[in-house]
Nucleic acid binder design. Structure first.
Lengths: 86, 86
DNA sequence: AAAGTATTTAGATGTTTATTTAAATATCTA
DNA sequence: TAGATATTTAAATAAACATCTAAATACTTT
């Protein structure tokens, strides 16, 4: 769970997650949305992968990333449990 | 919102929040739950204050901290909006 | 097989962050 | 008012992190 919160603490990574909410995308497509280098985006993606916030699949020379809703749910539970009477 | 996620990225700060969920506490009481120095806890509390995740009130020589449920709700909304169809 | 495209890995650099000890500030009590 | 307690601020340090360029790997196309 620490990995997940650490992953979410960076604005670029949160933005990546917001894009992936809309549709699955290749690493290159994701990188095109940002003004930072592809290696840097690749690094952010590996942190998101490691936290299991995103899933990935190889498709030829591309790698397609998608949101892992299961882990998103798990983080939400942490917040839910913060409410009174839990 | 970035401040909030940054604040939540540290395990000590998340633990503080979990304690404050149970009851309001003074800085000293909070510090006693941890094996790190009081100045370090004070620093963590100032980050949580700054992110408005906690509220505080002076009571004599003590400072009483409490959870700010309003901001907790706002973060939860970010996750809710990640669900399909939002 | 060679050249081109997509992605990741490696190594380097500057910044941010968590922590500590020591000192400062504020309040309480005898 | 002097001494004790609670909390924060300051200054220093070591570790973690985001970013870059250059190089490596993997796949596709001609």
């Amino acid at each position: 769970m620490n990995k997940v919160f650490k992953a979410l603490s960076d604005p670029t990574r949160r933005k990546i997650i917001e894009y992936l909410k809309e549709r699955d995308m290749t690493a290159g497509e994701i990188a095109n949305y940002f003004d930072i280098s592809k290696p840097s985006i690749s690094h952010h993606l590996s942190i998101l992968k490691n936290a299991e916030l995103v899933l990935w699949e190889k498709d030829g020379q591309n790698v397609i990333y998608s949101l892992n809703t299961t882990v998103v749910q798990e983080v939400m539970k942490w917040f839910f449990d913060l409410r009174e009477g839990n």
